Computed example of a mutant assay.
Amino acid sequence: MTPTRDLAGYRVVAVHAHPDDESISTGGALADLARRGADVLVVTCTLGEEGEVIGETYAQLIADEADQLGGYRIGELARALAALGVRGTFLGGAGHYRDSGMAGSAASRNPRAFVNCGEGGVDKLAEILEAERPHLVITYDPNGGYGHPDHIRAHEVAHAAAERTGVPRLVWAARLRSELEGGLPAQAPDGWRLPAPGELDAVDGTETWVELGEETYRAKVEAMRAHATQITIGEAAGPEGLTTYALSNLITQVITRREHYRSGAGAPLRAGGGLLEGIAK
Score class of each variant (00 low, 15 high):
20 D>I: 02
213 G>R: 09
38 A>F: 04
22 E>A: 02
196 A>S: 13
148 H>G: 00
86 V>W: 02
57 T>Q: 11
84 L>H: 02
101 G>N: 03
63 A>Q: 09
94 A>H: 08
278 G>F: 05
59 A>C: 06
187 Q>C: 15
178 S>E: 12
13 V>P: 01
137 V>T: 07
161 A>L: 10
7 L>M: 00
79 R>S: 10
89 T>R: 11
128 I>H: 12
63 A>V: 13
79 R>E: 12
199 E>Y: 00
113 A>F: 12
228 A>H: 12
205 G>S: 15
236 A>H: 14
31 A>E: 04
28 G>M: 01
256 T>V: 07
71 G>Q: 15
84 L>C: 02
174 A>V: 14
211 E>L: 08
69 L>S: 10
125 L>V: 02
163 E>I: 13
96 H>N: 08
23 S>P: 07
136 L>V: 03
103 A>T: 14
119 E>Y: 13
21 D>K: 09
111 P>K: 06
134 P>D: 04
66 A>H: 14
152 I>H: 07
28 G>C: 03
144 G>R: 11
146 Y>G: 01
201 D>Y: 15
164 R>P: 08
6 D>Y: 09
212 L>S: 06
109 R>K: 14
58 Y>M: 08
23 S>V: 08
129 L>Y: 04
172 W>H: 13
132 E>D: 06
13 V>N: 01
46 T>D: 06
119 E>P: 13
87 R>G: 09
83 A>I: 08
159 H>D: 15
167 V>H: 03
175 R>H: 14
48 G>N: 05
229 T>N: 07
235 E>M: 08
190 D>R: 15
30 L>P: 01
262 R>P: 07
27 G>A: 04
26 T>V: 06
34 A>D: 01
219 A>M: 05
166 G>L: 01
168 P>D: 05
172 W>P: 09
97 Y>E: 07
101 G>D: 06
161 A>W: 09
64 D>N: 15
70 G>I: 04
207 E>T: 08
159 H>G: 15
238 G>A: 04
129 L>T: 04
181 E>L: 12
34 A>L: 07
229 T>A: 03
93 G>M: 10
269 L>G: 05
266 G>L: 05
4 T>H: 05
280 A>M: 09
204 D>S: 07
203 V>S: 09
193 R>A: 07
18 H>F: 04
46 T>K: 02
70 G>L: 00
181 E>R: 12
47 L>N: 07
27 G>R: 00
205 G>I: 14
1 M>F: 15
185 P>T: 11
221 V>D: 10
274 G>R: 00
157 V>S: 05
64 D>K: 15
49 E>V: 05
28 G>S: 02
64 D>H: 14
134 P>E: 01
196 A>G: 12
135 H>F: 00
42 V>D: 06
46 T>R: 03
197 P>L: 00
212 L>C: 04
267 A>P: 11
171 V>Q: 05
59 A>G: 06
117 C>V: 13
14 A>Y: 09
99 D>L: 06
67 D>G: 07
196 A>V: 11
155 H>K: 04
138 I>A: 03
145 G>M: 07
16 H>F: 13
168 P>I: 01
143 N>W: 14
102 M>C: 10
170 L>C: 15
203 V>D: 11
80 A>E: 08
270 R>V: 05
91 L>K: 00
68 Q>H: 11
